[in-house]
Design a protein around this nucleic acid. Sequence first.
RNA 1: GGAGAGGUGGCUGAGUGGUCGAAAGCGGCGGUCUUGAAAACCGUUGGCCCGCGAGGGCCCGGGGGUUCGAAUCCCUCCCUCUCCGCCA
Length: 425
Amino acid sequence: MLSIRTLREQTDRVRKALADRGAEVDLDRILRLDERRRELLRELEALRNRRNEASKEVGRIKRQGGDASAIMAEMREVGTRIKALEAEQREVEPQLQDLLLRVPNVPHESVPVGQTEDDNPVVRTWGEPPSFEFEPLPHWELGERLGILDFERAAKIAGARFVVLKGLGSRLERALIQFMLDLHTEEHGYTEVWPPFMVNSTAMTGTGQLPKFEEDLFHLTGTDYYLVPTAEVPVTNLHAGEILNEGSLPISYTAYTPCFRAEAGAYGKDTRGMIRQHQFDKVELVKFVHPDRSYDELEALTRNAEEVLRRLGLPYRVVTLCTGDLGFSAAKTYDIEVWLPGQGRYREISSCSNFEDFQARRANIRFRSKGEKGTRLVHTLNGSGLAVGRTVVAILENCQQSDGSVVVPEALRPYVKADRIEATV
RNA sequence: GGAGAGGUGGCUGAGUGGUCGAAAGCGGCGGUCUUGAAAACCGUUGGCCCGCGAGGGCCCGGGGGUUCGAAUCCCUCCCUCUCCGCCA
């Protein structure tokens, strides 16, 4: 959420940001509501001030055994007026709040203006796409032939956009989770967290999934629980409502969770294979940082995510999301895209974002500096480190051999306890 | 699911209709003393909103109500703890 002050005082800047994003927001309605809200507040506070003074007077008179009925009668009227104003306030404030919660973040000045993913500039490329002396297979064919991926049975028990992993496929998934968590905790300084996989609507609002993107979530009927679409939600909200010590920053967490996404509006996209599933595993990186440091931290966090691909020897590139492709809450995002031979192109495997104070304002996450009065909002960041299912896809497709087997990347062998995945039939 | 107890500042905890944004202790910060530290002593120490400012308002789990006036009374929701039941 942007502060109403920013909307009020930097209206043109916000208007441009919204236009660059291609976002539809009725800024003028927000500003009118804000104006009304402040009018109400001014009048209310003046009346309350009168009432407070009068109440003190009543107390004084009564203690002296006097008659305060005249003041009390007058205050009865003031009370009625206050109630009427409060009623209007109860009307205006939630409206304003709801509208504010639906305004996207302002992109950082370094974010290129553009409309679609085709406008995302490539920042860097690492590794060489492997050349094959045969036609490389897509992962779903490889996986089914190897007996480690089973889409048909997954459809039987759950439906489309699910997969069953078997044997070394299942172990590969588990090994990757372990490998990623070990790397980030032992070498990158993150603290491991294992959060709930369901959260309430307050948490979903804190990170920006609600109120605007309810249709993307799985909501448990009759409850206020939602399945987490990413560990970003439970982990960022860990410090909701807290005032942190500046000395404790940056706070860096890594968390494994399954992620659940309704994938509404993705009909017909990536229907084959395990690129776009209703349930997938992800290891997430989350940081709470000092505002002056957040862009340095974004670079570091992105490098931490990239390191996973480097260790696995998987070719990738990093792109900067342009304004039109940027997510709702983010001020700046780098996508890490891994090379997929089965598709002959790079596909997103991690998204690393700086939200600046957008989430911190929603979730009320602040810090206090020693010797300074008052509090400031922290900046929050997060990134996938990495999406596990897509990493499995990348390994299968990049490490496939002419005989249909898959060579396990060396760094992963201690975890998989195998050098190679072969058909066992 | 049933019965009970309770939610007050960073923490513990007093406060049952007015002088309470709130005692006291702990913790934090600053100082005196000390080579330094500890102890002792002194001082200080919440957040949010409106306003250029002076200043004003709000916040005692959330929301609503009663009252001239609510941390205190009433309603409602949430959460925590204890016991019982159930359960991996």
